[in-house]
Design a protein around this nucleic acid. Structure first.
Length: 212
DNA sequence: CTCCCGATAT
DNA sequence: ATATCAGGAG
């Protein structure tokens, strides 16, 4: 496991590589963002961005989602995996927003995770991306890199999130998850990580590394 | 724990 | 053919 000083060094190096990391999902409103994040479960951002232009046009508000119902919304997300679950989540979420939240997305974590289709990761990403709040959502990339790079251990994403939010210095916390996802997506991939192209190679503590 | 379940890379 | 992609619900 990395020492406190090594964590600091890692954060600084990651920050230099991605000074202002941005979410690659396309969105314009909180409603659009939450739909995009729901669709992004076990899917590439690229695949999500392919369907969202039509989705945003056809389902621009929670009100419209409820009017269309599941059968009306499903065609817009048909080419994304788990489309039945995701369609159900979008319509149920819209209904609850209309019933209890004046048709608008709440902005606190504890409320968000009570909503249909929204768990810890989705809530964290929503608050981090939309409002730059210091949440570290633990998706497949963050979970993998946290262990591979020896940032911390943890059997569940919730455990890893709790530890990361404790050990990552405040200064780096807001950009951390996004930067780590970008590193994991394009360099430190699950299969065949591109160590030869990695800007963090010299400080990387992974057990197995390609030679550079 | 299982189920959901399309597109893409290897 | 199999692994992987910003997971959540039951």
């Amino acid at each position: 496991m990395l020492s406190k000083a090594e964590i600091e060094q890692f954060c600084e190096a990651l920050h230099e590589v991605h000074p202002d990391p941005k979410c690659e999902l396309i969105w314009h409103t909180p409603w659009e963002l939450i739909m995009a994040i729901i669709l992004s479960a076990q899917s590439t951002d690229k695949n999500v961005n392919r369907v969202t232009p039509e989705l945003f046009k056809g389902v621009p508000t929670p009100k419209k989602a409820v009017e269309l119902g599941e059968d009306g919304v499903r065609p817009f997300v048909k080419s994304v995996n788990y489309f039945n679950n995701k369609t159900r989540s979008i319509v149920a979420l819209a209904q609850k927003l209309l019933d209890e939240y004046n048709g608008e997305m709440p902005t606190d974590f504890d409320t968000l995770v009570t909503l249909p289709g929204i768990g810890r990761k989705t809530a964290s990403v929503f608050l981090n991306v939309a409002y730059h709040k210091p949440y570290i959502g633990v998706d497949t990339h963050v979970f993998r890199l946290a262990h591979r790079l020896k940032l911390c251990t943890g059997k569940t994403p919730a455990e890893v999130q709790e530890k990361l939010e404790k050990i990552i210095p405040e200064k780096y916390k807001t950009g951390f998850a996004l930067a780590l996802v970008l590193l994991g997506r394009y360099i430190c991939q699950a299969r065949k990580p591109k160590c030869g192209e990695c800007p963090l190679y010299t400080i990387c503590q992974a057990d197995e590394k390609e030679k550079k």
